[in-house]
Design a protein around this nucleic acid. Sequence first.
DNA 1: GACCAGATTGTCT
DNA 2: GACAATCTGGTCA
Length: 195
Amino acid sequence: MAPQALILPQSFYNRNTLAVAEELLGKVFRRTISSSTLSGRIVETEAYIAKNDPACHAFNGRTDRNEIMFGPPGFAYVYFTYGMHYCLNFVTEPEGVAAAVLIRALEPISGIETMKANRKTDKITNLCSGPAKLTQALSITKEDNGLPLFEGNFLVEDDGFLDFDIVTTTRIGIRQGAEFPWRFYIKDSPYVSRK
DNA sequence: GACCAGATTGTCT
DNA sequence: GACAATCTGGTCA
């Protein structure tokens, strides 16, 4: 019998961002939209910490866009980029410390038919294997910015899955701060964005 | 597989 | 006005 899934409490996020990014691997992200459930296992993350990290949106201080990162931990930070893509982050560290974890890839678990329709492809490994792909598959938009992750319809759960190794690399798609080894993914997962 | 161009607009300087 | 925590679809090998 599989262990019961437990919702990660807000305190899970109220910690060092690198630890949270690493420990989010293997956890399950789940959202419910009008009685249908879309979920997937987190297989790839990246850490962004305003202090000393020029790649972080909050590096140059508080703005309208990054305000949520300065708030309490355990909330979603969704931003729009490249004129057409949304990316999903989880805010970490105590209130006042701007930091977040970018969710880069999921292994689809439920709601796969809906994801296929949203992504206009039938290939499972192409549904959520990238930060903008997974927001498209799960219909995540600016409307979801600021939602709590520890209660409601937008959650992260621990179902006890621990059978994997973790690979640590530099982050993807940034120019400044590219040398920080703050990307984590599940070794040998076919659902990560890139090796 | 690798590399490259184009899409398309919010955000900040 | 420049750029962006990206993706897709094309070419070439």
